[in-house]
Write a protein that binds this DNA or RNA. Sequence first.
DNA 1: ATCCTGACGCTAT
DNA 2: AATAGCGCCAGGA
Length: 107
Amino acid sequence: MDPEDYVERVLSVVERVPRGRVTTYGAIAEHVADPRRRGPRSVGRVMSQQGGGVPWWRVVRADGSLPPSHDDEARAAYLEEGTALRPSGRVDMPRAFWDPDDGTPGP
DNA sequence: ATCCTGACGCTAT
DNA sequence: AATAGCGCCAGGA
């Protein structure tokens, strides 16, 4: 599989995340399930370098922590689209988490 | 090949 | 809640 395809798959998953919901690096990694590039860190790298064209704020860490280096913009986006937040400022994962596999049923 | 780095994840303090 | 340690994998020097 070409590296380019991997990037496109990751980005396409992010684009499917519904408004007001979020998913995680780990969930994307599992959904893509590339035999060569495994792990959430690879997804994180893709987002850092080419996540500018997709709703990157809908991708958070597993515990609901906001995406680093852009947490202010992310928070503004959450308020704007009504994403469930906790008093702590993190995303309310039980309510806002969106699993890529639930939204994209396979063959 | 080796070393360092990092938009991760999990467990233990 | 915040920090630290370890495992993990890919990239760049």
